[in-house]
Simulated scan of single mutants.
Amino acid sequence: MPRPVPEQLADLPYADLLRPHAGPLRSDERYDTVHFEGGEHTDESASGASFLECAFTGVALSGVKLRQARFNEVWVQAGRWVACDLSDSEWQDGAIVGGVLAGISAYGSALRRVVLRGCKLEAVNLRAAVLRDVVFEDCLLRDVDFGEAKLTEVSFPGSTLEEVRLRGARLSKVDLRGASRLGLADGHEGLRGAVISSLQLMELAPQFAHALGIEVKDR
């Protein structure tokens, strides 16, 4: 069962403590109980910044650098983050609800106890990332690269996976049974350690055969 996620700002346990943010994002800044509401941030740098008990609602980030940023108990709603650099960032106890993540570099990032609900992820680079206790609920993952990543206790209820890459990935207790579609571009051997349904196994059989160099003929 997906864990409960606040749907509205007022549902956050720290909602009454939030104060509005104004101005650009800054590198190495500490943002504590800050509400980022609306607006667009373009080509700014917040590398090394830390966000503790913060909320982003309707915020658009374009080309923003967030390398090595830390997000702890951060809630993101209806955000649009495009071509941002989140390499080596850390996310813990957070949620992203109804957002778009496109052209994102999150190489080497770490996500722990994070829920993504109703999100669209397209061309997201999660190579060498570490994901533990992460839920992708009712999401679209298109051209998402988990190459060389480590996934533990990750699930995909109601999500659609298209051209997802798993080459060199290490999976443990990964539950793919709830995915509405399981489309892999490569790395079928990376499914070792995952749980799939018998129907998914049948659908993947031609891809497994191709990956193993097996030619299937009835006559």
Rank of each mutant, 00 (worst) to 15 (best):
E90P: 02
E73M: 09
Q68G: 06
F51K: 03
H41G: 09
T42W: 08
S87R: 12
V74N: 04
L86D: 00
A95S: 07
G63Y: 13
T42E: 10
V59A: 07
N72R: 14
A83E: 15
S47E: 15
V82S: 01
G58S: 09
E53Y: 10
L52Q: 12
R80C: 08
T42C: 07
A78P: 01
R80K: 14
L52A: 10
G48A: 12
R70Y: 00
V97P: 02
C84Y: 02
E40I: 11
H41K: 10
F51S: 02
V74P: 02
S62Y: 15
V74G: 00
E90K: 09
D88N: 11
S87G: 05
I96Y: 14
W75H: 14
E40K: 11
A60K: 15
L86A: 01
G94C: 05
I96L: 15
T42N: 12
G63R: 12
Q68R: 15
Q68A: 13
T57M: 07
G48K: 10
T57H: 09
E40R: 14
V76K: 00
V59C: 08
G79D: 06
A55N: 00
I96N: 14
S45I: 11
E90T: 10
G79M: 02
H41T: 06
K65L: 13
L52P: 07
Q68H: 12
A69D: 03
R80G: 05
A55Y: 02
L66E: 05
Q92I: 10
G99D: 09
A60H: 15
S45W: 04
W75P: 01
Q68W: 09
S47Q: 13
E73I: 03
L52V: 11
W81D: 07
A49H: 06
G48N: 10
S87P: 00
A95Q: 07
